[in-house]
Amino acid sequence: MHLTQHLRGSLANKAMGNSTPATLEQPSLVSFSEHQRIDIDTPADGEASGLGNSNPATSDFEALAVHRYKLGVSVGFGGIIMIFAALTSAMVVRSGLSDDWKSFGLPSVLWFSTIALLVSSFTVEKAKRALRNSNENGLRTWLAVTTVLGVAFLVSQWMGWLNLTERGLYLAANPSHSFFYVFTVGHGLHLLGGLLAVGYVTGRVWCGHHWVTRSAAIEAAALYWHFMDVLWLYLFVLLLVWR
């Protein structure tokens, strides 16, 4: 702890020394903050594990990173919401304007998808709790379960599409099917992105890596995962009502 404090001071001096005060116009008038902002994206694997949560500098940094990652994901929701809002309004208009809209029964396997995704939201929350309680074993287990459930969801969606094609309901058969495919594939792609993120942190946690933005990555992935869950519930209800 002391070491870091000491390093900080010396580094600040070093930085001042390295800079070229001559280039700063009237340096006496320019005030720089004493406190350094700590930001890093480059993972510092393995070796960095010495910097545990007890280190104030690191936890400070972690809190900032968690905030930044979560903010980034939340802002991203805005864009994703607009994508699906546009598709929803397109569906409302398209089904209202025409007389060629044909309802169809949703594949029952979607109920399984829904349950899998709901449970995975629960497990990713458990993983987050384990992370906050420094329960490494719990973290590993719950992350792994979440990944498996995510894969199960996608497989289940795949079965749903197969089911439709077996019934002869292809993309262009009817606008109701077109929208079904657009919504589910669109959501599936977004979820695949989330799955890659969750799978990535799971893999690294399982390999025993501690990296400085670990909690940020896990918290952000969990937030995104919950959003995918809520988005799916919305789409599922929409498709049930409007198919």
């Binding site: 070491l3 870091t4 390093l7 900080r8 580094l11 930085a15 350094q36 700590i38 930001d39 890093i40 994206d41 480059t42 510092a44 070796e47 960095a48 010495g50 910097l51 500098a57 690191t58 940094f61 400085v212």
Partner: peptide, 15 residues
């Protein structure tokens, strides 16, 4: 080693 990591952390966001 710890020094390098710390420097890395403090000064540069990315090398």
């Amino acid at each position: 080693m710890a020094t390098e990591v710390a420097e890395h952390l403090e000064v540069h966001r990315h090398p």
